[in-house]
Amino acid sequence: MPDASVPADDRGLAYGDGLFETVLMRAGQPLLWSYHLARLAEGCRRLGLPMPDTAALDAELARPGAAALEVLKLVLTRGSGGQGYRVPDAPAPRLLVSRRAFVPSIVRWQEGVCVRLCDLRLGHQPRLAGIKHLNRLENVLARQEWYDPGIAEGLLVDTDGKLVEATSMNVFWRAKGQLWTPPVTRCGVAGTLRAALLDARVVAEAELSFEVLAEVDALWVANSVQGVWPVHTLLDPRGGTLATWARTGHDTLQRQGHRLLGYPGSFRNEAE
């Protein structure tokens, strides 16, 4: 059974020693579940944690939902014990599970969003790159950079000036007729919707320096819960606008991404 609370000596609380997954549930069914399990398994391998008991996960998924759309959050910690940073010889991982009703932002699907470039630069740590570990302080600090509700997300670049992700979403762009997303081999989170779009060959990986970000043909932020938000404005953190984009043509990324999540597809009527 999943734990209902976290004691003060839990290593996830003390050190961020653990992992989490945030899963969209539609009519009680998890979306992109195989991708979430694969990322969780990879995170467990990297951190040296046993995978959660399959029966506990199955029991949670079988529980009737309270809403048509829900967000299931799984938090897996190493549990208690050990001495300081030294992990216990026989860890007893702790699994916490929560579910809440969810309503996506249709307006952001339709009208797009304004985002800003963050001042914070992501550091490189390949052993943690891609997985969804509990220590997200870089993202927390980046999200503290703005409080304007008109700004939907912040874009993060690494210490080399390469675009990586948004604070809680992956980033995609179009250039020369191709859809791209940055690699996340040195830092950042490998989102499950991103993984599915890569597997479907809707997008491919490429590096992009923030200096030329304003030159791309279109820009999106997306994740497996919120869906795909087209970006219409990119703001400079010191004030002013770095770029604007008009929505033209059929939105292939939104259509394909939303198909995977059961959301409505592109909101444009033009042919591709």
Rank of each mutant, 00 (worst) to 15 (best):
L260E: 09
R45M: 12
G16L: 01
G150H: 13
Q125T: 00
A101E: 02
V103G: 06
A206Y: 11
R201M: 08
R136L: 15
T241G: 08
Q125W: 07
C114Q: 09
D199S: 11
D199F: 09
P230S: 10
G191C: 15
L47W: 14
L49T: 01
G79L: 01
V113G: 05
V221Q: 08
L120H: 14
K132Y: 15
T185D: 15
P230H: 10
E60Y: 07
L208F: 12
G18H: 00
V225Q: 09
A41Y: 11
G161Y: 10
R255L: 12
F172P: 10
N170H: 14
G154N: 06
P88Q: 07
K162C: 03
E215S: 12
V75M: 10
P91N: 06
R46K: 14
V75G: 02
V103M: 10
P182R: 05
P126N: 02
A66F: 09
E111M: 07
L40V: 12
A90P: 08
V228G: 09
L40Y: 13
G123R: 00
A218S: 15
L37S: 04
V189S: 11
G82D: 01
G81K: 01
E42K: 09
V164Q: 01
T244C: 15
N269S: 11
R268A: 14
T233V: 12
E205Y: 09
G188H: 08
P126T: 00
L76D: 02
S209Y: 12
G154K: 07
G112Q: 08
G12E: 00
R45S: 14
I151Q: 08
S266I: 07
D148Y: 08
G227R: 02
V103E: 14
S105I: 04
E145Q: 11
K176H: 15
Y263R: 01
L95I: 04
K162H: 00
Q178V: 13
R108Y: 13
A55H: 10
L242A: 05
R174H: 10
L198C: 11
I131F: 11
P2S: 05
G18L: 00
G123I: 03
S168W: 13
R100P: 02
F20G: 08
L72A: 00
R46G: 14
L141P: 13
W220T: 03
N139H: 15
R86T: 02
P64W: 13
E153Q: 03
A196R: 12
A8L: 03
R26G: 07
A55Y: 07
D236P: 02
Q178Y: 10
Q226A: 04
A222D: 09
T181K: 08
L74S: 09
D9W: 01
R194S: 10
M25H: 04
A56G: 04
M1I: 05
N139R: 11
L208D: 08
G150F: 12
P30S: 01
E215D: 15
A243S: 11
I106D: 07
V164C: 06
A55Q: 12
G257C: 06
N139A: 14
Q226G: 06
A14W: 03
R100Q: 02
V228F: 14
M51D: 11
D17Q: 10
V97C: 13
G123K: 00
Y85C: 05
L128W: 14
A218T: 05
A246T: 12
E215G: 06
R186P: 10
S98D: 04
T192K: 12
C118W: 03
D148R: 05
L19Q: 01
W146M: 07
E60M: 10
L13E: 00
T244E: 15
